[in-house]
Design a protein around this nucleic acid. Sequence first.
DNA 1: TCAGGGTGCTTGCAATTGCAAGCACCTTAG
DNA 2: CTAAGGTGCTTGCAATTGCAAGCACCCTGA
Lengths: 150, 150
Amino acid sequence: MAGSKVGSIGEYIREQRQRAKISLRQLAAVSGISNPYLSQIERGLRKPSAEILQQIAKGLRISAEALYVQAGILDEREADTDTQAAIRADLLLTERQKQVLLDIYESFRRENEAAAAAAADEEDPDHDAPGDDTQASAGEDTDDARRKTS
Amino acid sequence: MAGSKVGSIGEYIREQRQRAKISLRQLAAVSGISNPYLSQIERGLRKPSAEILQQIAKGLRISAEALYVQAGILDEREADTDTQAAIRADLLLTERQKQVLLDIYESFRRENEAAAAAAADEEDPDHDAPGDDTQASAGEDTDDARRKTS
DNA sequence: TCAGGGTGCTTGCAATTGCAAGCACCTTAG
DNA sequence: CTAAGGTGCTTGCAATTGCAAGCACCCTGA
């Protein structure tokens, strides 16, 4: 198997794990694999079998297929229909249910956009060195406030 | 991996190969794997990786997914609705969010099926209405026609 | 300060995977 | 009859996979 793919699945797993905010050992434990092995997988030193990927997916509470696709052993499904349109057109759902799903979908989308914007804001200070002092100062105040609320 | 599953994938591969009327060596050659190894796989002496299954599927000109299902590393897919397919393919959602939406969707579906069953029990008495008999009869004819064309 | 609990990683090893070399057997042509 | 070509399988081995034992480091509480 091409090393580039294996590196990709390891990065992907680490990414999903960090999103779930669990440690490597915790994920290894709930997945039922050894933590050194999970570490090696994440760093691309080992190429896990499909069974191991299945276990990791279970631990991450995502579908095994998603990991298989990243690992290059399953093709990405086409089905490029729009999620919102599909929900609205789904005859097996009541209108109320459609709305609930759409609300959650949009909330997830906003969440992801906010995460993307936050990532962009962290990169901006690097571009404007003079403005950094002002923005960094403001940023510190915000961080202090967050610590107090936590 | 449970030996019973491995024995099953080996039998399945041999079956498909014999249906295709090609020898073990021919399949091994077009699949790009060694013929002794293919022999061992067919007899359940070895458990092939997903990559090897992928190659065998290519040689047999069947989908890799079919072999994955037999090997127990992929669940048999239910017929996805458009909504499910759309959620799975949505690049703007994280894997975790997809799973949450799918779980809620399926819960709604089950809710609706239960409601439909309850409604059907309440409507049974209405079938005695004359107009309803005519429609039910037409529906049955349509079903018969479909069975003949299938 | 030290002890305990947490983090991720290193290392050696047993088991497994996949292969190359070769065997045993069958069929066909000369 | 033999030789050639085909079939499926045996065996030993290198490489890989997955693990257990343990290391290095960090943080917190007494």
